[in-house]
Nucleic acid binder design. Structure first.
Lengths: 72, 72
DNA sequence: AACACCACGCAGCTAAACTACGGGTTCAGC
DNA sequence: GCTGAACCCGTAGTTTAGCTGCGTGGTGTT
């Protein structure tokens, strides 16, 4: 379930950067297929991978999990 | 590098809950050795693992990465 | 028609997540 | 100065899942 939300979040961030999955994959140095898996929540990147994702998306790692309740 | 900080953070949270590594492992349903590896930054838990860690530590997943610069 | 973007299944490799055992250190208390 | 609790750390092993590649097919747009 976490993976699904994480994927959604990543897809949203990618789109907000106006990147296609292919361009995103190139910047990340990984395959397009993997991006697809991650965004659909089938797979989740490793912690090392999260670091790369965050870097390309220009956010902090913890922001990738910022879908959790926006309390306060 | 991320793993090291993550491990530190997890160790801190565990101690603040007054748990030994052994008690922590039991609650998590994993081995003590793995806890040690994670806290020292040798290994990082999978995303599914992060979910469990967060649950036991009673924090959100993103709080596990809340060591990043407290800027602004 | 053709192309861009993406979902999705299948099959595979390999790195790393995770376990088990055993020895060694530090520190507190008795 | 022994004992036990809590932890580090090395080695070696199993299994999972992170990640790739290829191929198909769908939708929308020009």
């Amino acid at each position: 379930m976490l993976q699904k939300k994480l994927g959604q979040r990543i897809a949203d961030l990618r789109r907000s950067m106006k990147l296609t999955q292919e361009q995103f994959a190139e910047k990340l140095g990984c395959s397009v297929e993997f991006i697809s898996l991650v965004e659909r929540g089938v797979n989740a990147p490793s912690v090392a991978g999260l670091e790369k994702f965050a870097k390309v998306l220009k956010v902090e790692v913890r922001d990738l999990f910022a879908f959790e309740e926006r309390r306060r």
